[in-house]
Amino acid sequence: MNANIMNRSELIYHTIAIISLVIVIILLWNFTSDGSYVEGKINSDVITEETVSTIYGQLYRMIPTFCGVILFSIVISFYLEEWLQQTSWQYQIIERHIAILARVPSLVVGILAVYFIFFHFQNITYYGLLLTVVLLVMPVTIQSTQKSIQTVDISVREAAYALGATRWRVVTDHVFPHTFSKILAVICTAISRILAIAAFLVASVWIYGSNSFSFPKSVILLITGALIVSVLSSLLD
């Protein structure tokens, strides 16, 4: 009976996945097939140093949101691993979504973000950036945090439960300290992904506006930052 439920939920899941894929492709096709659509909407003269500083302003303002997304992902991972039954269909479905989203190359998210934020909506909005960061950071962060939680030996949990620890105490006293440095590494990876996408956004707008392959210095700084944080992440892992 259990196997039956799994199969049905799997079927539903795959159907939804394929339908959403088709919708995404149709949307993209609509926007790209008509080249004038893009050119008609944005005027390259408008893109100046000022546009770039607007982007930075918005990015700065969103730093708390970015931190929130990262923290939220970590909390979700703990919820998934510690509170949700691993055999439940909820866990299975979330797990599969995350597995697929985490495999989407970040460049795909980046290109979509540039397209929708700048050329389609012509506005660097809060929700546009939020969606970008959610897609870019959450799946990877959740997945790596889950992996690090799974490395905690089951015997440590059992020993704690046998001494009368509540689930909450097991997580805060044992699982979290065990995974702490790995979680720091995960946070670094997330930060480096955010820095990289910021660099990508600014660089593409700059290239479009200046009609030449040149970057503002800030892009180089962002990339350098992303690289440094990646190195840090690998050191912590």
Binding site: S155, A159, A162, G164, H174
Partner: peptide, 15 residues
Amino acid sequence: SPKIGMVFHKPIPFR
């Protein structure tokens, strides 16, 4: 649980 204590087959000291 603590009223019925358990010593496992391998020692599991906490960190």
